[in-house]
Design a protein around this nucleic acid. Structure first.
Length: 574
DNA sequence: GGGAATGAAAC
DNA sequence: GTTTCATTCCC
């Protein structure tokens, strides 16, 4: 029997009830990919207000109350990601239903419900009051803008699961000021939500252990405990425990996916969009295919290979088990839900992830390195023993570095920048030539990544991240960085630039978590620097206690060495 | 309804 | 510390 949609779960443009969390206007200060978002600095309070998501509270009636938004008259200024108008008149494609929690039965206690007998019958909500959604958090707002803005074209990545992952990576690399802006926006939404629904209280439905004969799950009864809007109405979304299976297990994501997602995120952070983004991704895909890496994508039980689509469940390799395809180890996704649960808990390792525990994107070098093993090493990319691999069990020198993902856009990194060119890739060194260069300690070791550059000295003494880490511990944090960093003008480098500038006051905490794609394709050579030599060094990862926050986030330590031998390229990093 | 992310809020 | 749910839409 097909599953029946709960009432009101389908929101379309047609019904005017689409929930759209539009992006706020840009905050002053460091901008992100400003080169690609014309008007990003056109901060407008009017625009802010016009783009604010609002719940249109209908007068009390017997009509189920749906949250609505007031659509802005104009799209307003764009921020990092363009946000399409919520409901284009010509949009013939209705929106799909969101994953909204089903309405729940009214609370048992009359006191907790505004629809208590004491309420005016005329104002009483219908027995099937509408579910009141939670206010969105900062990331949800960002993701919504990310998706709706078409940051990643659908033909590049149609899967919203992957888009979420990419959004997560991008989110992790957002400059703090911009992230803070989204947090402020989320706070505003919470406040508005609180005003709209004064009595609202989040009441998650904690599942109880399944018991025989219980079918409470399917009997939501259609109704929030709430209903009835007004000053005196206390809205409660009373939840009742229902019998449901334990929370589903997280699926193991193919390393190829992770790498690709990280790469796409890096390109976005680089400021690429539109055809340039498509081209860069296509090139990346092509190169990986040629190297026999990442040629397998498994989506929803289907293995997508260059040769075609193959059902994932029929192979000799079970879900979560490593397979060899085209010489590239890939963690197969399982097909059935039960298999997913089984293999997920197994492959994720009992020591590192408890059952049901949330799985975050692991951008650690260990993870990504494991996800992208060197071609010469077809060994298993994942830890089959469930142990967390040491982040330093990774050999840089054995990696191959693909060519720049931005290919023809290298010219945009010319220095000094051409006044007539319209670079697709904004120059990170957008400072007047007369500006004093920041001073750097030339004693810093060169980046191991540059060891792959023919124009850079090869630090043969570093064969692993561990060596690098040991080396770096002998070097002081960059105290001689002068602010503002020349990198601060670059969209993708603004994070690093800002962090480096903060090194003046907090040398040991100068770097924020950044999305790191250790396939190194994201650290491609880009452009030509006639005056400046940028080197970016890797160092320190959360697992080694060198992170800045909770010890779980990897980060880059960047430094520039003005005295180093000239190289004909800078590193595009993020 | 799973999936994929992060964060708020409730347990 | 764990769990739910907020968004999005293809499958």
């Amino acid at each position: 029997m097909p599953v029946e949609r709960s009432r009101g779960s389908r929101r379309t443009c047609a019904d005017g009830n689409q929930l759209v969390w539009t992006e706020p206007s840009v905050a002053p200060g460091i901008a992100f990919a400003t080169n690609l978002t014309p008007g990003a600095f056109e901060d407008s309070k009017d625009a802010m207000s016009s783009m604010t998501t609002k719940f249109a509270v209908e007068p009390p009636s017997t009509t189920p109350i749906e949250p609505k938004i007031e659509q802005p008259a104009t799209p307003g200024p764009m921020f990092f990601f363009f946000d399409a108008p919520p409901c284009p008149p010509t949009d013939s494609k209705p929106k799909r239903a969101s994953h909204k929690r089903k309405p729940t039965p009214p609370p048992a206690s009359p006191a907790s419900s505004p629809s208590s007998p004491g309420a005016d019958a005329a104002d009483s909500p219908p027995p099937t009051a509408t579910h009141i959604p939670r206010p969105p958090n900062a990331f949800i707002l960002f993701r919504s803008s990310f998706i709706r803005g078409g940051a990643v074209p659908a033909d590049v990545e149609p899967s919203h699961s992957s888009l979420s992952a990419i959004a997560g990576l991008t989110w992790a690399a957002l400059p703090p000021p911009e992230k803070e802006m989204w947090h402020r926006k989320a706070k505003e939404e919470r406040e508005k939500h609180r005003e709209r629904f004064p009595g609202y209280a989040f009441r998650p439905r904690y599942r109880v252990a399944p018991s025989s004969g219980s079918d409470a799950d399917g009997e939501d009864g259609g109704g929030e405990g709430g209903g009835g809007f007004g000053e005196s109405c206390a809205i409660q979304q009373q939840q009742t425990a229902v019998a449901k299976p334990r929370r589903r297990q997280q699926r193991e994501v193919a390393p190829a996916d992770r790498i690709r997602q990280a790469h796409i995120a890096s390109l976005l952070l680089l400021g690429l969009k539109g055809p340039a983004l498509n081209e860069a991704i296509a090139k990346f895909d092509q190169e990986r295919k040629e190297r026999g890496e990442g040629g397998v994508e498994v989506r929803f039980g289907v293995v997508e290979t260059p040769e075609g689509r193959v059902e994932a469940g029929d192979a000799k390799c079970g879900g979560g088990v490593e397979c060899e395809r085209e010489g590239s180890p890939v963690v197969r996704r399982c097909t059935s839900k039960s298999e997913k649960r089984r293999t997920s808990s197994k492959t994720e390792g009992s020591k590192t992830l408890k059952e049901g525990k949330r799985r975050r994107i692991d951008t650690s070098p260990a993870s990504l390195a494991a996800a992208s093993p060197p071609p010469s090493s077809p060994s298993t990319p994942t830890d089959t023993e469930g142990e967390t691999m040491s982040p330093f069990a990774f050999d840089f020198d054995s990696l191959s570095i693909p060519s720049t993902p931005i290919g023809d856009f290298t010219a945009s990194f010319e220095w000094p920048p051409s006044s007539t060119s319209s670079p697709a890739c904004f120059s990170p060194f957008d400072i007047p030539p007369s500006s004093p260069h920041p001073s750097f300690d030339s004693s810093y070791p060169p980046s191991p990544a540059l060891s792959h550059s023919s124009a850079s000295p090869s630090p043969s003494s570093w064969s692993s991240l561990e060596d690098l880490s040991n080396s770096l511990t002998a070097y002081p944090a960059p105290r001689t960085m002068s602010a503002p960093s020349p990198l601060s003008a670059c969209s993708s480098m603004s994070s690093i630039g800002g962090d480096l500038s903060s090194a003046l006051t907090s040398p040991t905490e100068c770097i924020n978590p950044l999305a790191v794609d250790l396939s190194l394709s994201s650290m491609s050579m880009c452009g030509s620097f006639s005056e400046l030599d940028l080197q970016l060094g890797f160092a320190a990862f959360g697992d080694m206690g060198m992170g800045i926050d909770d010890g779980s986030a990897p980060y880059l330590t960047g430094y520039m060495d003005m005295e180093a031998p000239q190289v004909d390229a800078g590193i595009v990093a993020w």
